[in-house]
Amino acid sequence: MSVLPELGGSPRPTPPAFFEMNGVGKSFGPTESATEVLRGVNLEIREGEFVAIVGFSGSGKSTLVALMAGLLDPDQGSLRILGEPVTGPGPDRGVVFQNYSLLPWLTVRENVLLAVDQVFPKKSAVERADHAEHYIEMVNLTAALEKRPDELSGGMRQRVAVARGLAIEPRILLMDEPLGALDALTRGTLQVEIERIWARDKKTVVLVTNSVDEAVLLADRIVPLKPGPRASLGPSFPVDLPRPRDRKALNGSVTFQRTRNEVTQYLIEMQSRSTPAMSALGRSLPDLEPADLRPPRASFRS
């Protein structure tokens, strides 16, 4: 796999980045009328770093996550993890999907075990069960071990998804708007929990979100995604706040407010700049996978 030359052309320092994206682009649709969602995306992530990617709805966030996870192949550019090219999805990159993606016919325990069994086939059954339970405990769901997703609230389902994502012990945990579908209160609780788990594990995390506040609260570094089409990543905004971060205390913090304002300002500026292009296109851009809100299809009668 060849690496496209960097725009700047200067050679990189030798040790490979933990995770890197070079000139990644992705289009959808038939060639003649393809919609270019991402173009020239460059990103480098250090080990143990908590990176938040912030963008408006429809800016290509989910496409970006799918590319990082390997669920989509880039049209241009390359992705590397520890210098190895990413050629497809794998358990080294855990994904917490936007709509949880729990298997509705399995209990909480079984959902996590499915992942653990697959990724740690060498462990004994007892070890795997302990392993799964450990992560379920980490997200405070031990009481719901034997419940099925339809018996859980949205916040609880998302915790199961987080437990499943962590239980496979990925090198990177990719979270695609994990809290997007939750109410503000649950969101706040889960944010605290995500930070707590991250502080304990020091896992490399990429959090994709549309909330600047959430990004500032959780991340070491915020990377804005410029609005699409042809979205690319903007400059990094380091978040220089001590951990653990307390939500209430932060509200009064000057650094918090400054960082939040800088990122918001940048996004709004980019948005207004790209608006003409969007209207010229004459249609709004679809997100990668629109959630299917139709009622479940009725069975086929013959």
Partner: peptide, 8 residues
């Protein structure tokens, strides 16, 4: 996609 990530 879950199956793909887990490489089932």
């Amino acid at each position: 996609n879950v199956a793909r990530v887990l490489q089932l």
